[in-house]
Simulated assay, not measured.
Amino acid sequence: MKQMIKGLRLLSTLLTPKVNSGERIHHSVRGILCSAGGQCVACLEPNAHFGLCTPCRQDLPANHWHCRQCALPLAFEGNDRLCGQCLQDPPPFSGVIAPWRYRFPVDSMIQRYKYNGQRTFARPLINDLAEHLVSVLEAAPERRPELLVASPMHPARRRQRGFNQAADIAEQISIRCGIPWTTELVIRNRRTRPQRGLSREERLANLTRIFHVTRRAPERIAIVDDVVTTGATARSLTIALLEAGARDVQIWALARTPG
């Protein structure tokens, strides 16, 4: 894979993460995520396109076959099936768009971005997600939301991490798709245990009634996040938005875990 592991270990960014203030576009984020060319973040090949050369981009684990509602990766061909979980307990959101499976190298790229603030690793994923969404909305304009809602982060965790990755992603999608975005419609009432390492039932309990919607929600909303795992956060946030007046809520993310 063209020394992809070596590239992921060696490359870092000198840019300092900034806390996103809501609906104002930060030129620093725009510059990081919107410039084409440069070096491939995976193998260090020059003349990459938005941070990845063509072979490394082709090696990304695309989520080709998945559940039509929650985008859970499936082992068999076709996207018209529902997974067992969605059959037993249908989620409140109308669908999930997540172009990649959360495995190497996508998982390493997102982790470096999310936990180390190395935005360079996220640039190709966010750019390609935005391009994919443009195509989806051109083919199905009825799916176009009125507002993008960045998955909220508790203020204490945001200060600790230095930025909210969901807000970065929502901002770039807003620029490319021409859809307003916000971090102010929904807030987290309390800080929760980290979701990593929890079972699905523990994740759902951990997120019970932690979201507060500050005003009446638009009818059509897309929640933006980095990764969909069990869908517990998406479920809890969707329920809060539906109770506040939304009628259709989608989930847009970079990647979906295998289950």
Rank of each mutant, 00 (worst) to 15 (best):
K2F: 09
Q3L: 13
Q3Y: 14
R9K: 14
R9S: 14
L10R: 10
L10V: 09
L11I: 13
S12T: 15
T13V: 11
V19S: 08
H27G: 12
G31M: 11
S35M: 12
Q39Y: 03
C40S: 10
A42N: 05
E45M: 05
P46A: 05
F50W: 10
G51V: 05
L52G: 00
T54Q: 13
L60C: 13
W65R: 00
C67V: 09
R68T: 05
R68D: 04
Q69V: 15
P73M: 02
P73W: 01
N79F: 00
Q85H: 10
C86K: 07
Q88A: 14
Q88T: 05
P90G: 14
I97Q: 09
A98T: 02
P99W: 07
R101C: 15
F104Y: 15
D107E: 14
Y115T: 15
Y115R: 11
G117M: 05
T120G: 01
F121R: 01
V134I: 12
R143N: 03
R143A: 00
P145L: 01
A150Q: 04
S151N: 08
A156G: 03
R157M: 12
R159E: 12
R159P: 12
R161M: 14
G162W: 07
F163N: 00
I169Y: 07
E171L: 09
Q172M: 12
Q172I: 15
Q172W: 08
S174E: 00
I179M: 06
P180D: 10
P180Q: 08
P180I: 08
T182D: 04
L185E: 00
V186S: 08
I187S: 07
R188V: 03
N189E: 11
R191P: 05
T192A: 09
Q195N: 07
L198T: 06
E201K: 13
R203C: 01
L204T: 03
N206E: 05
R209Q: 14
R209Y: 12
H212C: 07
H212D: 08
A217L: 05
I221H: 04
V224E: 01
V224D: 00
V224N: 07
V224W: 01
D225G: 06
V227G: 05
V228Y: 03
T229E: 06
T229A: 13
L237G: 01
T238Q: 12
A240S: 12
L241M: 12
V249M: 15
V249I: 15
W252L: 10
W252Q: 06
A255S: 13
G259F: 02
